[in-house]
């Protein structure tokens, strides 16, 4: 495999949750994603797809293997470096939006930028918000927005730092069918328009069909 041409690559990653009965969440897996690719990881509940996503997002550490983002090895980075990597190269979209309730939509979107020590381009952010159809929610707090608007805000936050990879964990899980479709289309749009690699975890085949590639996972084992 040529690492350089992959935006995101995982080699031999595995994860086991220790306990009275160890849970093999992810067995040794090799994955690679190219730029602008929209990949769906589909599997049943408990199949290990969220674990896989969290490892790819560096939110969890695999027991074995290595992770590369844009050719750079992120496994073994120190906390500060990893944090910098995370905020610059990775965007994460949650199933339950995970917006900060005390900040407005605009503030939620720009916070990661400022976390990186940069200043946002207001125009660019507003355009992004307009593209996602949430400009009217600029000064609204999450509890004042609908589920769909919150999820789009979450997407906007993920896109605002112009990451190399956007990872979405069941982004339509809390949405109705109409909004789910809109979000799926939005993600498709982002991957094409902004050339972002998007990896989406879902259990919904319908959502998965929007992806360019579907990866199946079952009991911690990835099959394509």
């Amino acid at each position: 495999m040529e690492t350089a041409k992959y935006v995101l690559e995982a080699r031999g990653i595995s994860r086991t949750y220790k306990g009275e009965v160890p849970v093999y969440a992810l067995k040794e897996t090799d994955l690679a994603f190219t730029e602008g690719e929209f990949v769906a990881i589909i599997g049943r509940s408990g199949s290990g797809k969220s674990t896989l996503l969290r490892i790819l997002a560096t939110l969890d550490v695999s027991d074995t293997g290595e992770l590369y983002i844009e050719g750079e090895k992120v496994s073994g980075l120190k906390d500060a470096e990893l944090a910098r990597f995370r905020r610059r190269r990775i965007g994460f979209i949650y199933q339950d939006y995970n917006l900060f309730p005390e900040y407005t939509a605009y503030e939620n979107i720009v916070f990661p930028i400022h976390l990186d020590g940069r200043t946002e381009d207001k125009a660019a952010v507003e355009k992004l918000m307009e593209d996602l159809g949430i400009l009217h929610c600029r000064d609204k707090f999450p509890h004042e927005m609908s589920g769909g608007e919150q999820q789009r805000t979450s997407i906007a936050r993920a896109l605002a730092t112009e990451p190399a990879v956007i990872l979405a964990d069941e982004p339509t899980g809390n949405l109705d069918a109409e909004n789910s479709q809109k979000v799926a289309e939005l993600l498709k749009f982002c991957s094409e328009e902004y050339r972002r690699t998007i990896v989406m975890v879902t259990h919904d085949q319908g959502m998965a069909n929007y992806a360019d590639r579907i990866i199946r996972i079952s009991d911690g084992v990835v099959t394509e």
């Binding site: 995370r86 976390l115 990186d116 936050r157 730092t161």
Partner: peptide, 8 residues
Amino acid sequence: EIGASTGE
């Protein structure tokens, strides 16, 4: 998750 370090 959005990129703040432990220290921050």
